[in-house]
Amino acid sequence: MAILLATDFGAAELALWSELLQTELPAETLVSDRMDCDPGVIDIAIVANPPPGALSCLPNLRLIQSLWAGVDTLLRDPTLPAGVPIARMVDPAMNQAMAQTALWAVLSLQRDFFTYAAQQRAMQWLPHPQRRADEVSVAVLGLGQMGQAAARRLAGNGYRVSGWSTREVAVPDVATGSGEAALARVLGDASIVVNLLPLTPATTGLFDRTRFAQMRRGAGFVNLARGAQVVDADLLAALDSGQLRHAVLDVFHSEPLPAGHRFWTHPQVTLLPHVAAQTDPRSAAPIAASNVHALREGRALQHLVDRRRGY
């Protein structure tokens, strides 16, 4: 049998992943072009943004292992084989990278570092009152692996952290809730809102004028999840009106962000090019390989996706 590596990687990145995966799976045959072998011998696909249709017509496919934490793009492919288990990437290194980014964003909002950066460009010397971390309430929306890591890191740095998720989740030192009433309460209580929710039909367009109006006036907004969860025009209106003080955005509807988009030049927006928590091949390749070994040995697969929930 063979493993198909179906990705949108360039040649150098594909070569790196192939080398690392082959090291972890020395007995396996890896192919990066399904035309290089009989489709019937492919029983596992390791994927990262595979082209639409790349996984169709593989009659013996038994596992789809994603190299990404989010699988929303993969699930939107109408040719995705039904009934084949899908596993997403859950990498402790990625969780910690996301927690670091969340801490950087919250700390920068708390201590006015984005404001000071703008003042430097304008050659202004203007100190601002310094808030303590325990005076800042932070809401983390989405309490999966990354959300929990971020919430714990923020709480460990002295912030008053609350968390919200679609299902009730307990996190040490974090007040958690679920449901519509709890979401409105969490948003209204927070000085800073950090979004780490998965992209599902329920969360698409979640952050619109209604949600922004529920937030405390002058709050900060940090989106590290998916761009499709935000209505861009409503976010810009909330920033322009002062309802929101500043937004830190790592993800967008279209990536790269189009050159003419107002986010590029808005004085109250800080941008990242979708780098809050990148997959590190050095740690992710062994994790992907572990599920291959589990399948071969008849053991339970890890981090399986519930297609109905979308994550």
Rank of each mutant, 00 (worst) to 15 (best):
R209I: 01
L187H: 03
L103H: 08
A149Y: 06
L25A: 04
S56M: 08
N49K: 12
R245E: 09
I44D: 01
C57D: 15
A190G: 11
A284W: 00
L154M: 12
L224Y: 04
G163K: 10
E255S: 12
P198K: 07
Q22E: 14
I46V: 14
A289C: 11
A48K: 09
G205P: 10
V194I: 12
L244E: 08
R245L: 05
D208H: 12
V71L: 02
Q120I: 00
R308V: 10
E19Q: 15
D43K: 06
V47W: 01
I192L: 01
W104P: 00
F212C: 13
M1Y: 02
G144K: 08
L74D: 00
P52C: 05
G70E: 06
T200H: 09
S290T: 10
D91P: 05
V193I: 06
H303K: 04
N223G: 12
R167A: 14
F207I: 01
L20S: 09
A247D: 06
L20V: 05
P39Y: 09
A6P: 00
E13F: 03
V231Q: 13
D240A: 09
T200Q: 12
I64A: 11
L295I: 05
V169D: 04
L143K: 09
R282T: 13
Q145D: 14
E24N: 15
R62T: 11
A45Y: 03
V292N: 03
E255C: 12
V47R: 01
I86C: 07
Q65H: 02
A238V: 00
D173I: 01
L55Y: 02
A233S: 11
A150R: 02
W125Y: 09
V140W: 11
C37Y: 04
F263T: 01
R296E: 12
G220A: 13
Q120G: 01
R309N: 08
L183F: 14
L16Q: 15
R282V: 15
T204I: 02
W125F: 07
V194N: 07
A288K: 07
W68L: 10
A182I: 13
W17K: 04
H128C: 01
L304Q: 06
V47Q: 01
P92Y: 09
F207V: 04
A6M: 00
L14P: 00
D134Q: 15
A288Q: 10
L236M: 10
A69Q: 03
M146N: 11
Q268F: 01
P129K: 03
G40T: 14
A133D: 10
D240V: 00
L21K: 09
N157A: 13
W164H: 11
L16F: 07
R309C: 05
T176I: 06
A82H: 13
W264R: 10
L236E: 06
G220W: 03
R209C: 04
R132Q: 14
S56Y: 06
D240E: 15
G156V: 00
D208N: 15
R132C: 07
D8N: 08
A15E: 14
S56N: 13
A190D: 10
T203D: 04
V275W: 02
H303L: 03
D91A: 06
D8K: 04
A228E: 13
M123Y: 05
W164F: 07
A6S: 05
R309Y: 15
L199A: 14
A155F: 08
L154D: 09
Q130C: 05
A238D: 03
Y311S: 08
R226E: 08
